[in-house]
Design a protein around this nucleic acid. Sequence first.
DNA 1: CTAAAATGTGCAATATTCGGCAAAAATAGG
DNA 2: CCTATTTTTGCCGAATATTGCACATTTTAG
Lengths: 249, 249
Amino acid sequence: MLKEERQFIILEELRIHNKVLTSELSQTLEVSEDTIRRDLRDLADGGKIRKVHGGAVVNAFPPYDFRDREIFALERKVLLAKKAVGLFKPGQVILMDGGTTNLELAKRIPSDLQVTIFTNSLPVAVILSEHPSAEVIFIGGRLLKNEKVTAGIEATESLEGIRADWGVIGARSIHQKEGITENNWDESRVKKALVKASQKVMALIIEEKLESIHPYKVLEIKKLHTMVVDLPHDHKFLNPYLRLGIQIL
Amino acid sequence: MLKEERQFIILEELRIHNKVLTSELSQTLEVSEDTIRRDLRDLADGGKIRKVHGGAVVNAFPPYDFRDREIFALERKVLLAKKAVGLFKPGQVILMDGGTTNLELAKRIPSDLQVTIFTNSLPVAVILSEHPSAEVIFIGGRLLKNEKVTAGIEATESLEGIRADWGVIGARSIHQKEGITENNWDESRVKKALVKASQKVMALIIEEKLESIHPYKVLEIKKLHTMVVDLPHDHKFLNPYLRLGIQIL
DNA sequence: CTAAAATGTGCAATATTCGGCAAAAATAGG
DNA sequence: CCTATTTTTGCCGAATATTGCACATTTTAG
């Protein structure tokens, strides 16, 4: 592995987590800790990062930070995000909804992938505002404080006339007959608008969200193009979706 | 866990609750109380917090937040913010621009003050998303990554038809003849739209910004209603503005 | 005033870093 | 193609940093 390659990975890791450990990197990248240390020193000399005892941290902690609170099933959400990010191709236009899973996805969009991202999620926008090559368009509207997304007429209207390559919908629940449903009416409206403005819709679904139902419909199950899940492909829960021709990842 | 990470979390905790307990931190962070004590001592030595028996409290004197320490002239900006926040009355509609000074203002809106705030600034929106009684409306558009504000047609259009009580403009420079000017064209457009949608315009100005000029005009000096400054009222620099009937605070 | 809680200090164990060195790999020049 | 030079990497031992613990001392609260 090239030194540059390694240092690039370190920076990516740093962008996602805001910190790296010498010991972890040494294992992940399969080089000695000395080498990692030298890498970190190089990067620190270039002013890109700040070297500290045990690893390195980002130069300036973001002025606002949705500090990694306890997120339910974070590890599996990260897994979904890593799978999903491979579906994005250079030049694509992506609509991105809120939610913790989608936030993990946003963090993992490679620095060199040029995409245009529309989002109504404050945390997603914050993360992407540090992305070097993504164009970010924030969908305005009334801010829902709990969900940290915008909603309302303003938001739905500004999505009219957009034909994005992907719509990434955050799903509170999904059901083989009822499709994706929400429990907040305003939010469900925006999600509907997001869906309408996307050619293909993907949803990242952890096991717990399967086969549950909430009052407001967002998406007919037939309209779902891709489902990224944390289950083996032959799991019985997935059969109904496979039969409908939905791509499972 | 890195020492820096721990100390960052401590500061974060302090910012939210204004105090921390050694015993609680020891449990939360899973290190001995001795370690927490050493952390608190480090932070106190740096003037970031004030150590007390049993834990620590926010430093009575700014800068009390280490992330803000890198902001130019933060102390004076905080002063301006404290002065300006008194101008907001319950029920008002306020348009709020970006910038570090305005961010300080947003942080200081009393939690029981019911106002409606339109903003195109990501950091301002993040801060206000934690505000218990303010209604927040985000002005969508293309995100300028350096400034962390939205701009573009989308943003200016969505301000049409609004008549806010106050427009709080972030000013890069102000001049007694040229008024408020900017060096980024896109940004200057949004600011112009903000101004147009406001009945009264206020600007928080630190001394360094007086009498400097940038290429793109945002606001005729006559249209400025209130100027909040860090100078004594009888300072000679302020005479031209006083003569124009601008309220100086 | 007294008991409990919190603190400071010295110390030892562990983890991390630093500098020098040599082997291995990549590069350049003939 | 071969050789000299530079770069990169891993290893070693010494130096440094971090952490938890024990114990004496101080502070707090009732």
